[in-house]
């Protein structure tokens, strides 16, 4: 009886803790937006963060985009060819990349490459009381530290996702046209006939923008909210990766069902 009560009590505490954190995150986000103007005035802070979260993620995005595209090319051709439509390989590769794989995989990579680093940085600043020190010097830590990292992520992510998709299409072309021998003209012309700029590509860009904002918000929040100990920091970093991945996949489902359901 007592054990059962304990379980219920712990469950309740977890729920309350979760709701509390969501509320705090919402207030934190509002605060972040309010101080954004102030921090965007000093644009070099954001530029620096774009370097850390965007430029340093270039290599992993380019290489994985290429490989994902190459795998799509191989597997897609294998399946399409059974139905005698190997020429439609370009359509398959480009649609799956621009609509889904580009934003989602780039988002997951971005969360583990850049989001994690942001959490670690802010968390360590908090643990070593640098944030409090800034507050003492009348420097707002949200405007000075948090907002630039958030906007750096928001700006980097759509560019990275577009790069991922472009590299993927190139990888699919490499395998399909250069190695397997799908007709070059059919590959591109069928792709161009099937991919609509506003419908497919802009929706993909919108997705990557949403994912970028989500990952960046989770990363800065987990860092800002972490328990200021070594253990708390490591838990915050783990939470960033897990929560970002879950948020990206769940949001992707919601966005896809809003954008693409019942059409074509």
């Amino acid at each position: 009886m007592n054990g059962l009560l304990n379980v219920i009590r712990r469950l309740g505490a977890m729920v309350v803790e979760g709701v509390w954190r969501i509320g705090f995150a919402a207030r934190f986000f509002m605060l972040l937006l309010r101080h954004s103007g102030q921090s965007l005035m000093r644009i070099h802070l954001t530029v620096r963060e774009i370097y850390f979260s965007g430029v340093l993620s270039l290599l992993i995005i380019v290489v994985s985009g290429l490989f994902v595209g190459m795998v799509l090319g191989l597997q897609g051709y294998e399946t399409l060819q059974r139905y005698g439509s190997g020429d439609a390989l370009g359509v398959l590769v480009s649609l799956s990349l621009t609509r889904e794989l580009g934003p989602v995989v780039a988002g997951l990579l971005f969360a583990s490459r850049a989001g994690l680093a942001v959490t670690a940085e802010i968390g360590l600043m908090k643990t070593t009381e640098q944030l409090d020190a800034m507050d003492m010097m009348a420097v707002n830590p949200i405007a000075r530290v948090v907002a630039p990292r958030f906007w750096g992520g928001v700006i980097s992510m759509p560019l990275l996702a577009a790069l991922f998709s472009a590299m993927g299409v190139f990888g699919g072309w490499l395998i399909g046209v250069v190695f397997i021998g799908v007709d070059d003209g059919a590959f591109w012309s069928q792709m161009q006939a099937a991919v609509d700029f506003r419908f497919d590509i802009m929706n993909g860009v919108l997705k990557s923008f949403v994912f970028g904002a989500t990952v960046a918000l989770i990363a800065v929040f987990e860092g800002y909210d972490c328990t200021p100990t070594a253990e708390g920091l490591s838990r915050a970093i783990t939470r960033t990766v897990v929560t970002s991945a879950l948020a990206i996949l769940a949001l992707d489902f919601v966005l896809t069902s809003l954008m693409f359901r019942g059409q074509s």
Partner: peptide
């Protein structure tokens, strides 16, 4: 980085789309 990202977007818009 920004230039290469924009170039990728252009590639998607004109060559893929």
């Amino acid at each position: 980085f920004v230039v290469i990202g924009m170039a990728a977007l252009m590639f998607l818009a004109f060559k893929v789309g």
